[in-house]
Amino acid sequence: MNLAQPVLLDARIARKRYAERTVLADVALHVKRGEIVCLVGPSGCGKSTLLRIVAGLERDYRGSVTLDGVPLDGPSPRIGVIFQEPRLLPWLTVADNVGFAAGRRGGRDPRVAQLLSEVQLSAAAAALPSALSGGMAQRAAIARGLFGEPEVLLLDEPFSAVDAMTRMHLQALLLDVVARHGTSAIVVTHDLDEALYLGDRVLMLAADPGRLDGELAVGLPRPRDRRDPELARLRARLFDAFQRFHEHSAATAR
């Protein structure tokens, strides 16, 4: 990722509350063109809420989200979303699920065939979701997320429901298709190794209220070797940061 690239997405969340609880406070998030940013933090720190705000699915907050300088006040085709579960429509074929945004016969759109080829699902185009494995279903979800050619792709723990080997395959696949399409991405994950393998930057969120508590740049070229000692060193830094956060939280609670 070229560090000289301009900022594409700029989210400034002054406050997000659910009833009397402040979920996010004074969060400033920016993403450059072609950049992958990973969000990590303890459960309940507001990672998924932040993603929903950026996606335009959550509008009751104080702050702003702009894309290329243009304010966003709701869902936009320029932002694609991939959820933790694939959420494929069971009565549609894989191809029609991928091309769903194009209407009733969206599976015939030539972009669908290209995307299915990229995620290695061409042979399953006419299959129903019930015939897919978990990894195949998530590949279909990635293709669907890219169908509208979004500039930013949001992924909320997209690989948490699959086994370790499938997860690694999907991580590599995601990097490949995002690079091919020139798409920026924000990935929410609990997995520190995943964050370091995917991200150009890793942002750490603390809880109560959710706020940015640190940033780690991953200056390693791709493709990355999962056995690289530098990744192990960066993981230790992330782990130490979380240990300090938990110790501080425990001391505050006493």
Rank of each mutant, 00 (worst) to 15 (best):
R111N: 09
I79S: 06
R224I: 09
E215I: 02
R167K: 11
A140S: 14
Q5D: 15
I186L: 14
A217M: 10
E35P: 11
M165D: 05
V31D: 12
D60C: 06
L198I: 04
L234F: 07
T66R: 10
L39W: 03
G107S: 12
L29I: 13
L24C: 09
S122I: 11
L231V: 00
L88M: 04
L3H: 01
S160D: 09
R222I: 13
F245W: 14
S249F: 06
D240K: 12
T49V: 13
D68F: 01
S76F: 03
A207R: 14
A19V: 00
R180Y: 10
A140F: 07
E85I: 02
P150F: 14
A131I: 00
P75K: 10
Q84I: 02
V177Q: 13
R15V: 01
E85N: 12
L198H: 05
L155G: 06
P110L: 04
V218C: 01
D225E: 01
R78N: 08
L128N: 03
N97T: 08
A11F: 07
R180N: 13
S133N: 10
G135E: 02
A251E: 15
D96K: 12
Q138A: 08
L29C: 07
R105P: 05
P209V: 05
R21W: 07
H169C: 06
R244P: 02
M136R: 10
I186R: 03
P129E: 03
E157M: 04
H190W: 10
P129Q: 04
G63Y: 09
T66I: 07
S43V: 11
A126S: 15
F245S: 12
L67I: 10
G74C: 08
R52Q: 12
E20D: 15
G41T: 05
G210R: 05
T166Y: 03
R211D: 01
M1E: 10
M1H: 14
S64M: 01
S133E: 07
A217W: 02
T93Y: 14
R227A: 13
A19I: 00
R227C: 00
D10V: 04
P150H: 14
R21N: 15
G214D: 08
L8Q: 12
T49N: 09
A232Y: 07
T93M: 15
E151F: 05
A125F: 07
P77T: 00
V218N: 02
R12S: 08
G107D: 02
E149H: 11
A179W: 00
L198N: 04
R244M: 09
R12N: 11
V202R: 00
A131P: 04
A28K: 07
R139N: 15
R78W: 02
R78T: 03
D176Q: 15
A179M: 09
G69C: 09
R139E: 14
D163V: 01
V54M: 13
L29K: 04
V152P: 15
A126M: 11
E20P: 01
D240F: 04
R52A: 14
L8K: 06
L175V: 09
L196Q: 08
D10K: 03
A179P: 02
G134V: 05
R87G: 03
Q120R: 15
P86C: 08
P110K: 04
T183N: 07
A164W: 03
L192K: 01
